[in-house]
Amino acid sequence: MDQRLYVDVHLIQTVPPANLNRDDQGNPKEAYFGGHRRARVSSQAWKRATRTRFAAHTPQQDHATRTKRIAAELATRLAARTGLEIEQATRLATALLQPLGIKPGKKAGDTAYLLFFGYRQLEDIIDLVADQATDLTALEDEELAKAVKDLPVADQLQQGHPMDVALFGRMVADIPALNVDAAVQVAHALSTHAVDLEFDYYTAVDDENPKEETGAGMIGQIGFNSATLYRYATINVPRLTANLGDADAALTAVDAFIEHFARSIPSGHQNSFAHRTLPSLVAVVVREDQPVNLVSAFEKPLLPEQEGDGLAADSAVRLAVEHDRATRQWGDVPAHVAVCHTFDPDAHTGERLTTILGTNTPFPALLAGLHTTLATHLGQAR
């Protein structure tokens, strides 16, 4: 499919004091942008949060995992399916994976790098040997290696990808045949305003201390900040369709990604800060030219005003204006634009957003409208 079709997802989300994504010092990640220090949440952290939410809302057989323990996982499933003892199942699993040329890790049974694959793909590998597993494990090592060498094990990892592998891709540097090009790109989330790092100095009381003993049983500190974040991701719909091998499956994956990306949040220090929020604005833009990140809207940081609609509202308007200006100046005409926000539709911010981006749409309706638009485009491309 040569058609270019992208879905850009833009979000404005306010997070209270939190430490969503730690650096090597244990403090919230930050970045300089526009000459000012900003709060930052890495793309990896939000992709992990999105994948975790996928797993909580999809059947287990459709799950994927990223691990160095593919041999152990395959062996466990082999034993469960065939009745083999775990030692024999491990031997057979190792033999099945050996022709792939996956480099071993430092620990016995581990691979040298994380592999991203679906549980259903492992079951497909097991299907290749399930009926003869007992006979195969009775062979000597050399005979076993010869017996399984030509089985299409690699083929099972190159097809039938679960949704999150199709979306986020798989990179195996020394085995290019196992690579899956990602259909989704996720930007690092940045605050729309400057931030300062703060610290929570905390103490914990020993409940069993005698009354005459005072003082804390433990003391410590946690770095934190609070921010209104601009989050951005883009979906390459033709790539996603190719990865899944089916247009309808790709449409379902787009729906799922936007649903879980919007509702997910990294869980760092969640128990300490209870920082889970939902976005104040979600905008989707379907483009037929190229993805466009609108972070330039916040190159000049927003300043909190004593009287105004607040940082979230001001960020939403700044984003909408940047989208409008870029569209006009570059002559781009998006195939579809829709917005869902929580601002008063009759107040200043709501009116500006309606004027620029269109009518405020409930989130389920936003997804449904996007689904219809993409289905039309994909149908025309067939």
Rank of each mutant, 00 (worst) to 15 (best):
E85T: 11
A75R: 07
K47N: 06
F54Y: 15
K47F: 07
P59H: 11
A95I: 08
R51V: 08
T52A: 11
R40S: 03
A89S: 01
T90P: 02
T76A: 15
R51T: 08
G101W: 07
A93I: 02
T65I: 03
R66E: 09
K68P: 10
A79D: 08
A56F: 08
S42R: 01
L84E: 05
A95D: 05
A49F: 00
L74C: 07
R38W: 09
E73V: 06
L100T: 02
A95F: 02
S43Y: 14
A89N: 05
D62Q: 14
T50F: 05
A93C: 00
A55M: 13
Q88R: 15
E85M: 04
P59Y: 12
A72S: 15
P99G: 08
E73Y: 03
Q44C: 03
S42V: 00
L97N: 04
K47A: 10
W46S: 06
D62V: 05
A72D: 15
A79L: 03
A79V: 04
A39K: 01
A64P: 08
E87L: 02
T76D: 13
T76C: 11
R91T: 07
R66S: 06
T94E: 15
A55F: 03
Q98W: 14
Q61A: 13
R48Y: 10
T82V: 01
L97R: 05
E73R: 13
L78E: 02
A64Q: 07
I70N: 07
T76R: 12
R69F: 10
T90G: 09
E73Q: 11
T76S: 13
E73M: 09
